[in-house]
């Protein structure tokens, strides 16, 4: 006979797994890179946190370590997404045709004159690699 705590933990585990599944599905279905980052990296964060919470319900004595894993995830995961999105924008990854506005590109095109030499150097060599 399971206690209520165990059942709650199990249900949280399944809920987290459902969010992970949605994240995977979003990663597969979304049309362009930025939307894939949105669907993939974010939904999986919530899914993982729910699974950590479920594990904490099942084994309360692991609580501190699970909490720490959650905190680390909450700080590392957005960092990698941001750095990746920034790099992708710098490299002018093509966006889906539905994209309506891109204010960052406008801001960059104004600033580009000062940074021009650097982006030229970085971009020209690797574009061949990228497109092949």
């Amino acid at each position: 006979m399971e206690s209520l705590l165990d059942i709650t933990g199990g249900v949280l585990l399944v809920a987290g797994a459902v969010f992970l599944l949605l994240g995977g599905l979003g990663l597969w279905r979304m049309p362009d890179l930025f939307n894939r980052i949105q669907a993939g990296a974010k939904t999986t964060t919530l899914g993982t946190i729910l699974i950590l919470a479920g594990a904490a319900f099942l084994h309360p004595e692991w609580g501190f370590k699970l909490l720490l894993i959650g905190i680390f995830l909450l700080f590392t995961n957005p960092l990698s997404s941001q750095v990746l999105a920034r790099a992708a924008h710098r490299r002018n990854i093509e966006t889906s045709p539905q994209t309506s506005v891109d204010m960052l590109a406008d801001a960059f095109s104004q600033k580009a004159t000062s940074e021009n030499d650097l982006s030229e150097k970085a971009g020209s060599d690797k574009d061949a690699e990228e497109k092949s």
Binding site: F72, F75, T76, L79, Q82, V83, R86, E115, L118
Partner: peptide
């Protein structure tokens, strides 16, 4: 070597994460 620094987010984040 002429390299601009990384963005503010990565800088602050690394100051936060390196001690951890």
């Amino acid at each position: 070597r002429k390299l601009p620094p990384s963005g503010e987010l990565l800088t602050t984040g690394s100051y936060l994460l390196v001690p951890l």
